[in-house]
Each structure stands twice: as structure tokens, then as C-alpha cells.
Design a protein around this nucleic acid. Sequence first.
DNA 1: TAGATTGTTAATCGATTAACAATC
DNA 2: TAGATTGTTAATCGATTAACAATC
Lengths: 212, 212
Amino acid sequence: MAKEKKDISMSVIKRLPRYYRFLGELKKQSIVRISSRELSQRMGLTASQIRQDLNCFGGFGQQGYGYNVDQLRQEIGSILGVGSDFKTILIGCGNLGKAIASHMVFEDRGFKLIGIFDSRADDMKDLRIKGLSVSPMEDLEVYCREAEPSVAVLCIPSDSTAPVVEKLIALGIRNFWNFTHYDISSHHDGVVVENVHLNDSLMTLSYQILNQ
Amino acid sequence: MAKEKKDISMSVIKRLPRYYRFLGELKKQSIVRISSRELSQRMGLTASQIRQDLNCFGGFGQQGYGYNVDQLRQEIGSILGVGSDFKTILIGCGNLGKAIASHMVFEDRGFKLIGIFDSRADDMKDLRIKGLSVSPMEDLEVYCREAEPSVAVLCIPSDSTAPVVEKLIALGIRNFWNFTHYDISSHHDGVVVENVHLNDSLMTLSYQILNQ
DNA sequence: TAGATTGTTAATCGATTAACAATC
DNA sequence: TAGATTGTTAATCGATTAACAATC
């Protein structure tokens, strides 16, 4: 039933997870159907925008009725690839890496954590995160040839990121969840990068506080 | 010299931290001056956009010369409030909260962490993060009346966030760095919220992998 | 059938890009 | 002065909102 994907704009994509979240809430509250108007009021959007967004992918609604909450949620989930199983490795197991690995429900979102690497793995002999031990960076090459992960989560210091990315790309990894400040996209083409720049976020907050 | 701030769009604001970062890099490389054209090539933007963005705030450049790297960096830093000193408390000291508190260079970005709270503070008697111990949530009210923090960082489970936000707002806190999935803006007006929705980010990555 | 609400087209608004006169 | 590059206005492009015919 889903439409041929044309070229959906990033603005739309970025809104999808939020729809997914709100629909999950509605489902929890045992709400079965919802109109674009009602959803728009809850989410602080226009009904028009919701209908436009959803119609990028197909006619999920029904005239005179609205949308079926659970069905719509599943459709959006499938568009976002919630049911995927991307083999993922974590590079850098310091405070942040540890938190990301143990805190995030990777599996719920289509990512399967299969390996953890850190340059000081020696100091982490006894550490286990989700049953995984921490391997030294030297093992990366052999490991990747065997396990063929497709995604790397980067939680290493920004200034040592460049050569690591170089290596990962050489080993065939094309998808990055990047917590460093290193600007992967401006150095490499044909690579998928989702940045989480916490410092940038903090500075945006700071601006908003000063100019509210 | 800075212009009267009209109403700068969020699109522009969100780009400023990235400018700040690139200018920091250039400074490190002892580059003194840069033209919008050269900067645009390094950052993968158009020169036009850079000039437009910067001119929202004032004429930082000089015709025939370009921009002075260090001066421009400082101007942007000051727009973003890098030199501020917002009193900040952390709510929730689990894996993520711990990582955020110890990993982030709050101070460099205008935020001063002055207190940490967790509902299970009893189990964290010996924990010290940046010299701070973890206080129980019951102490929040008295503490806020005394110390008057203006920013709260939320690293608690999403489903217990609503009442905590309620309380913090009652205690006069209006600015939030929100790592939970709870949608503060849709429940409260006149509040500054900067969201870091890691799950949303992960889902966006997933979409991009499937549709690259 | 009448009422409700979608899917979709048209109108508006905002953001990005192009162009160029001002000026260092 | 001539060359370079900004600041700024105008043109284009894209995203959001409004409107309404289609239809459940």
C-alpha cells in the first residue's frame, strides 16, 4: 500500500519519530482512532502538515474516520526501519560510550550491538556491557572482516576521530552514529552520518535562554 | 557593533555552533583570515548562506578582505552566550546522567553544574561527580529556594518525567536540557526546552540507511 | 443520505541562492 | 587605482498552510 518513495525531505523524516512516539502514547491509552485535527492539537502542529507528512508515504487514513492509531504507528515504524537488525559496533567505551551502550534500547530501534572497542581495552578487562567485553582497537580489522558490522557508533575524543573513521570506511562501514565533533560528512562522500553534537545542543540552549 | 536582534530564525541559530567549531579549527591551524567562499567550501555550504547568516547579527567582515577568524569566532561565541554562567542542576544520575555530567565541558559552554539529584541517592552515597555528591529528590525544593538554579538537565526515565517537570517549574526553573522523551513544550508554555532525543536520532539514522 | 475527515491541489510564507553595487 | 569580497537586495526554491473536492 505504501507509495513509491519519491524524495522525501529531511524535514518530514525528522518529524516521523515524534509521530511514532505520540502514537505509542495514544496506543497505551487505548485510543483506537484519531483525526489529523485532534493529533495536531496534541502535538502542536497543524492538521494540514500532518496530512501532508503522512501522504508522502501513502494513504494511511480513511475519509470521514481519521487514522487507526495502531496501524499508523506500525506503518511509520516500518518506514523508519524499526524492525531492522543492523549489526552495530561501539567505538569508545568511556563515560559516554558506556552510557549509550547500556542505556539505549538499540534493539527496539533496529540496531543490534555486536561489538565494543576501546584503545584502553586493557584497563577494562572485567567490564561487561550487555554481555559484551571490550576489545582493543587492534582487533578491529580482523573483527570487521569476520562479523561485517554495518554501523559504527562513535564515542571517542573528537581529535582522534579522523583516522578511526578512515579505518572504518576502509573496512566497509558506511553508516555512523557520531557523538564526536569531527565532521565526517565534509570529509567523506557517500556515507550516512547521523550526528549527535551535544555541545552544539547546549549552545543552542544557551542562545535561547539569553534571547527568550 | 552587533545589530539589534530582530527575530533570527532557528535555522540560523542551529548553524552557529558549527561555525563556531570550524572557526576554532581554523584558529588552531593559525589561519588568520577567511573569505565566505573559502569557508563555504570547507563546510559544504554556499558562500551566500554564510554571508546571510552572519549578517543577521552585524557586519563582521570587511569588503575585499573577508573575515578575521578569531574575531568572528569570538562574536559568534558571544551571541551563543559561551561566556555565561547559568546555574545548572542535573536530575537523574544513572548511566546517562553520569556520562553527561562528567563528560560534558559544561563550563566551556556557559553552564555551571551546581547540584545533582536522584531518587535513589541513598545508593550513591560515595559517588562524587566533579566534586558534587548526589542529593535525594526530597531536597530539591529547599535547595532550589537557596541556590536558585535556572537550568535543569533531565536524565530520568521518560515516564516519571511529568511530575518532576511540574515541580521544577513550580520552583522557578524555566530552562531545560531534556534527554527524556517527555514532550515538555506541548505541556508547558513560556519555557525554553532543548531536546536531545537519542532514540529519535537513531530512528532517523535507520531511515537513512534504508533509503540511502 | 448527511456529516466527517481525508487526500490533494493551490496559495502563502520563509529560507536559500544568485546577483551586484558598495567599499575596503 | 584595480581586485577582492563583503553587505544587501532580488529571484528562486522549498516547506507550510489553507481550501476544497473526493469519499468513507
